[in-house]
Structure formats: C-alpha cells, structure tokens
Design a protein around this nucleic acid. Structure first.
Lengths: 208, 208
DNA sequence: GACGACATACCAACCGGTCGGTATGTAGTC
DNA sequence: GACTACATACCGACCGGTTGGTATGTCGTC
C-alpha cells in the first residue's frame, strides 16, 4: 500500500503522503517533511504536483487505486453463496486491522474531514474512493437478497453497502480516540450481527 | 452551542474555535483567524490559553460540557419504556441534523483524527466526550434488555452504546464526503433497524 | 539539442508565540 | 475612605522560524 521504496519520485512522494497524512493529518503535513520522508527535494515535488491541493487529490486517487486492487484480489469473492461473500468481506476487513492505528486506518476518511469545506476537489476524490468501494459490494448484497428472498423494507443494496463503510469509518475514529484497535472488531461484530438479522429467513419482515 | 456573542473573551474564543475547527480542521485554524472571528486579540488568547494545544483540550472539554447539557435536557428521556427511550434518542439525533454540514457534525470526531497521534492530551479530551456520552445510553439499553428479556449473545449495553456513536461518527464522515446530510438519516435508519432486531421478541437468539 | 526528471537556492507570507503595557477590579490596612 | 499591593482581563506590536511556492541549474536520454 505504501510504496515506501518505489523507483520513481512520484510514487515515493505519494507513499510518504499516505503515511504522514494518516498520522498527522493533511494540514499538519508540511511539504518539507513530506519530501524528507520521501527522500526527494522540493524541486521533485513541484515537478510532479502543481501544489499541495493537487497532492491531496493525487493521494486520494492513489489510495483508491491501491485499495481497489487490494479488494479486487482478496479471497472473499470465492464463496459461491453471495451472503457468504458479504460476510467474508467483513472477515477480510477484520484481517486488515493489524499493526498500529495509523497503519490500518483509512486515508480518505481522515483527509475528507479536513478538506470537505475548503478543498472540494480533494473532497470529491475522497468520495470517489469511499463510494466507489461501497459500490463493489452492491452486487453481492443484491444477489444475497434475491437468493434468500429478502424483500427490503426501507433499505437497498446501495444503502447497506454504504452503511458498511459508515460503520468502518466510525470505528476508525473511535479506535483513534481510545487508541485501541479492538473497537474496530467490536464495530464489525455489530455490523455482522445486523447483516445476519437482515438475511435471516423469517415469515414476517420488520418495518422501520 | 456556539456562544458566538458571549460576554467574556474565553467563551467567545471557544465558540469561534468550535466553528472554525469543524469547518477547516484544527491545524488549518490559525490563531489569527481564530482571534479575528472571536473579536479578541492575540493577547487575550494567550491570557486564557497556554498555547494552541491547550486550546484544543479546552475546546473538546467545552464541547463535552455543551453537548452533555443538551442531551441531559432533551425530551428523549421521557418515555416510560427504556427501549422507547433508546429509539427516541435516535429520533433526537435525527432532529439535530439541521443546517449545513459544518453545523451539525461533531467537533471531537474531527478533532481527534488530526490529533490522536501527535497530541495525546487533545485525544484524551475527545475520547472523554465521545465515550462519556455513550455511557449515558447504557442504563436505558440495560433496562431495555432486562424488560424485553434479551440475553445478549456477544454484545453488552456498553458495546451497543458505543456502536451508536460509531455509526454517527461514520455517518458524519460520509455526509462530508458527499456533502449530503441525507446520509446521516440513512445511517440512523440502519442503526434503528438493527436495534429493533436486537430487541425483537423471539424464541431463539442469533449467534455471532 | 530538446525534453523529462530531478536538485539547489531562494523568497515572501504566514505561523505560533512573546512581550511590555493598560484598564479595572479587590482585598487589606491605617 | 484613602492608600498600597496585587490580581485579572485584555491589548497590539513584534519576533524568529516555518510554510507553500518559485526560479534556475544540471544531468541523462532520445
């Protein structure tokens, strides 16, 4: 994910940006620190990026590309049953919670909080990452609804897919606040329990 | 909440800090901007606060005091049934989603993401606000479990109370990313559906 | 010799923080 | 009730370092 020792300067800068922004935030990450950590000079930076805002957009795009490749190649797509794939996705998210808080939390979740009001281009790039990823879950959810004959009362595959990301992003915030990765596991447990409820065979569906 | 025109400089500074930090973030909020918006000078600022980190701690504390008064006096405590109180809490959270995104989102959720690694004092103040508020929900959840004879399989009043805050914090992030308050309502709807599932009378409980 | 990929040197604005100073209490003493 | 001694609240000019950004140079490759 971090391309710490990439051959070209651009990727080294983006790798350093992902690391520093997740740790300190976007505004608190100075270009001097960034270039030092990437092992390049300011000249290299401004050769590849028009400015700091451009770096933010590029970092969010880089994150989106990296994570979408990671999830596309992950093993949770293997089960034949679509509901099993959704639950395997949650297992995979649990597996990703390793190392320190700055290593497993989400770049774009951090980035968007600092930039949503002042840097709409960065905000949109973050939104593309979050909602683009959510979208990859919709097909499995829709297939699971069909197979398990679930008629949604008040929710859709899209809204449930979005909700998984809501829970994960919130879990990262609470994990940071308490400096405790266990809170992410708790949140995923609740989310899994909810999804199992939604797909539990029953005579009468709940209203909300 | 914002004490925009408080009589004393300290509260005006804190009100301006809550506004600016929610809008731009902590690092991007300069003391010059802050003092300008508060209508005070740098001298007044450094009379009341030891430095910028101290402001962060004070703002989180101020937020905790303000929100805990708001929730303590809110009408969702009125229903006799404890589960109804929990659901009324969710309704109250829906009501708070008014105005623009910077106005209804959470100060400490934003603040902690920028400071969890570099300013532990601020992080702890944010954690106190989030988890202190979550704790106020535990009694109602526990009473609801008792009344509705729910034997939790894998969750506790504490973990469910925490989960409500997880969902809300995550919802704020997604609402910022898409610049759309409706995402908060969607998230609360899913959360309400989950809670209703948990307390639905049934013969057999689910495992997770 | 043009061009892409960087390095070096530098700048002006801005940043958090300091400092000397003023105005207004307020409590104690005679 | 006047005087001293001190505290609180606030002002605004100023400082040195850092910031994002620029201008120019160099080296390898086609």
């Amino acid at each position: 994910m971090s391309s710490a020792a990439a051959p070209n300067a651009r990727d080294r800068i983006l790798g350093a940006a992902i690391d520093l922004i997740r740790r300190e935030g976007f505004a608190a990450t100075s270009l001097d620190d960034l270039c030092r950590q990437a092992g390049v000079t300011k000249g290299a930076f401004f050769h590849h990026f028009a400015g700091k805002e451009d770096l933010g957009v590029a970092a969010a795009d880089f994150w989106r590309e990296g994570t979408s490749a990671l999830f596309a190649n992950a093993p949770y797509h293997r089960p034949a049953d679509p509901l099993a794939r959704v639950l395997a996705y949650l297992d995979f998210r649990r597996e990703l919670v390793r190392g320190g808080v700055p290593e497993f939390t989400c770049l774009v979740g951090t980035l968007v909080q600092e930039t949503y009001d002042s840097h709409p281009r960065i905000r949109d790039a973050c939104a593309a990452s979050i909602f683009g990823h959510a979208q990859t879950l919709e097909a499995d959810i829709a297939a699971a609804m069909k197979k398990h004959r679930v008629t949604a009362a008040g929710w859709t595959p899209e809204s449930l897919a979005t909700h998984t990301q809501t829970v994960l992003q919130g879990a990262f915030i609470l994990a940071k606040a308490k400096n405790d990765p266990a809170l992410v596991f708790d949140a995923i447990d609740h989310l899994e329990r909810y999804i199992r409820f939604l797909f539990k065979p029953k005579k009468k569906a709940a209203a909300a």
